[in-house]
C-alpha cells in the first residue's frame, strides 16, 4: 500500500491519522505531561478548563490533560498487549491446525472452543480473585479472549491458501509442516491479521473500560481512560465535564481504530471483507 492508495480511501487516512495521534499523545506521557499525575492537591480539585489546566482538574486535583495522556497510553498498552497475546498464541495454533490437520486440527479447535466458552468477564473476575485486580489482569483476560479469535482467523485464512498449487509443490519438494506454515501460510495471512488486530485493539480498549468500571481493571494511582470514566461516573450530575473528557476520548479512539480496520480491509484486499468477523463482544 502506498500514499496514493491512502488518498483513494479518505476515511482510512483520517482513521489512521487520528489513531496514531492518540497513540503518540499517550507515548509522549512517558517523558512529559503538563503536570505529574501522582501529585494530589485537594485544594485544587474540580477546577474547570483554564489556561493553566487545559482540561481542568479531577476529584483529587490532578491535571485532566495529563491524566488523559497517561490514561490513553494505559488503554492502548492494555489492549495492545491483549492483541499480542492473541496473535502470539492464536496464530501458531491456527496455522498448525491447517499445516498438520487431523488430530492436531481437532485439538486446536476444541482448545479454541474451551477458551471461547469462558466469557472474558468471568475470566477477568477469576484472575482478579487469584492475583488481585490490575492492568495485568485486564491484559490476560483480554488476551485469552483474543486467542480463539486469532486462531480462527488464521485457520480460516490459511485454509484457503493451503489448497493452492504452490503449497502442494512445496510439500512435494520435501518441506515439513512447520516450514510450510512459516514460509507460505503466515506471510499470506498477514494482511488478514493486521485487519483483525485493529478491530481487536478497539474492542480491547472498550473491554479495559468495562473491566475498570467493575473494579477489575487499572488500579489507582495508575490511570486509564476507563478508570477516569468510572471515577467520574458518580460525579456526573455535579461535574459532567470529568466524564465527558475520558468518555469522548474512548469513543474517538475506538471509532478511529474501527475506521482504520474497515479501511485497511478494503484497501488491502477487497475479497477479505467477509473473512474476519467483527465479533460482537467486548
Amino acid at each position: 500500500m502506498n500514499w496514493q492508495q491512502l488518498g483513494r480511501h479518505p476515511s482510512l487516512a483520517i482513521g489512521l491519522m487520528a489513531a496514531t495521534l492518540f497513540a503518540l499523545l499517550g507515548l509522549v506521557s512517558l517523558w512529559w505531561t503538563p503536570f505529574p499525575i501522582e501529585q494530589i492537591s485537594i485544594a485544587r480539585r474540580f477546577l474547570g478548563p483554564a489556561t493553566e489546566h487545559w482540561l481542568g482538574t479531577d476529584h483529587l486535583g490532578r491535571d485532566m490533560f495529563s491524566l488523559v495522556m497517561r490514561g490513553t497510553l494505559t488503554s492502548f498498552v492494555v489492549a495492545g498487549l491483549g492483541v499480542i497475546i492473541g496473535i502470539g498464541v492464536g496464530v501458531p495454533l491456527g496455522l498448525a491446525a491447517v499445516a498438520w490437520g487431523g488430530m492436531v486440527e481437532w485439538l486446536v479447535l476444541r482448545l479454541s472452543d474451551i477458551t471461547f466458552a469462558f466469557p472474558a468477564v468471568i475470566v477477568a473476575i477469576l484472575i482478579a480473585a487469584l492475583f488481585g485486580p490490575g492492568e495485568i489482569n485486564a491484559v490476560i483476560a483480554i488476551g485469552i479472549f483474543n486467542i480463539p479469535v486469532f486462531a480462527r482467523v488464521a485457520r480460516g485464512g490459511a485454509l484457503a491458501i493451503a489448497t493452492q498449487d504452490y503449497v502442494a509443490a512445496a510439500r512435494l519438494a520435501g518441506l515439513g509442516n512447520a516450514a510450510i506454515a512459516a514460509r507460505h501460510l503466515l506471510p499470506n495471512i498477514m494482511s488478514l491479521l493486521i485487519v483483525q488486530g485493529t478491530i481487536q485493539l478497539s474492542l480491547g480498549i472498550l473491554a479495559e473500560a468495562g473491566l475498570s468500571y467493575i473494579g477489575l481493571g487499572t488500579q489507582p494511582p495508575a490511570t486509564s481512560l476507563g478508570l477516569m470514566l468510572r471515577d467520574a461516573q458518580s460525579l456526573f450530575l455535579i461535574h459532567p465535564w470529568l466524564s465527558v473528557v475520558p468518555g469522548l476520548t474512548i469513543v474517538l479512539i475506538v471509532i478511529a481504530l474501527n475506521i482504520s480496520g474497515d479501511g485497511l480491509r478494503d484497501a488491502i484486499d477487497p475479497r477479505l471483507r467477509h473473512e474476519g468477523l467483527n465479533h460482537g463482544a467486548g
Partner: peptide, 18 residues
C-alpha cells in the same frame, strides 16, 4: 453505527437513565 459500537455501555446506560 461506528459511534454505537464505540460508546462504553455503562456510560450509555447512565445517559439513558438520566
Amino acid at each position: 453505527a461506528q459511534t454505537g459500537v464505540a460508546i462504553p455501555n455503562f456510560w450509555f446506560g447512565m445517559l439513558l437513565t438520566l
